[in-house]
């Protein structure tokens, strides 16, 4: 599978960038001629990943969020969202629906939503080093 197109960008972990990043990735994905539903899936999943960087990884500070997206010749989009923040102690626990370390206004559904709106979700993390979330989705696959 050959990469047909790719882009990278870096943003600061400010909540105003949540809509900026999801809209940008959705605009990039539009090259694959996705349906309205597929675009909404991508936007929602990306929004969750970026929000996690802001509310968890860089909870006490502002850091950089690194976004990479690639399309291949089989209409698959791959989006990676990386931070150099606090990292996740227990990934399995973090991926459980309704689990949250924040309580109150957070539903604990971030990973569950990313999982249900994409085809594959890979989470790699090291405490103190950071986290990379990679989401893979086939467009026109259903």
């Amino acid at each position: 599978m050959k990469v047909k197109n790719e882009f990278r960008m870096t943003v600061e972990s400010r909540s105003v960038n949540e809509s900026f990043v999801r809209t940008t990735v959705a605009a990039f994905a539009s090259q694959l001629d996705p349906t309205v539903e597929e675009i909404a899936d991508i936007k929602t999943a990306v929004s969750e990943a970026v929000t996690n960087c802001i509310v968890h990884a860089y909870k006490e500070c502002v850091g950089k969020i690194y976004i990479y997206a690639a399309l291949n010749d089989e209409s698959i989009i791959r989006v990676s969202i990386r931070d150099r923040g606090c990292g996740i102690e227990d990934i399995k626990k973090a991926r459980e629906p309704l689990f949250t370390t924040l309580g109150g206004e957070r539903a604990g559904l971030g990973f569950a939503v990313m999982e249900s709106f994409t085809d594959k979700l890979i989470v790699r993390s090291k405490p103190g080093k950071g986290t990379t979330v990679t989401m893979i989705k086939k467009i026109g696959g259903r």
């Binding site: 929602t44 929004s47 109150g104 957070r106 559904l109 939503v113």
Partner: peptide, 16 residues
């Protein structure tokens, strides 16, 4: 026009 899980958190918080 758009909602992520923050909308769910918003509803849960208002329930509280």
């Amino acid at each position: 026009t758009f909602m992520d899980s923050s909308g769910v958190g918003l509803a849960m918080g208002r329930y509280r």
